[in-house]
Amino acid sequence: MSTDTEGESLARREPDTARPEPERPYGYVVGSAPDGVERELSHDEFDPVGTLTLIFAYFVILVVMWVFMYFVEFLGRGLTVVG
């Protein structure tokens, strides 16, 4: 069973935009975004600079909010537990 499907499944794993379309329902098929692929990017060709930008922005938000929550909201409140 598993050897039968092995070849097929390996093919299935590769994005294959030139694959002839089987019978598809009318309209957008969920999960068909790979059909819009214009170019293949390998691991070495791909530089996630956008991700770095987003995650750096997230880092800054986290730090600012943490400092605000800890030192202003928390330590700035009355009846702090001291013992």
Binding site: R12, R13, D16, E23, G31, P34, H43
Partner: peptide, 15 residues
């Protein structure tokens, strides 16, 4: 029921 209701291919990871 249809032949291909959804695109269920899962590509291999980059690394």
């Amino acid at each position: 029921p249809v032949e291909t209701p959804v695109d269920d291919r899962l590509p291999a990871p980059l690394s």
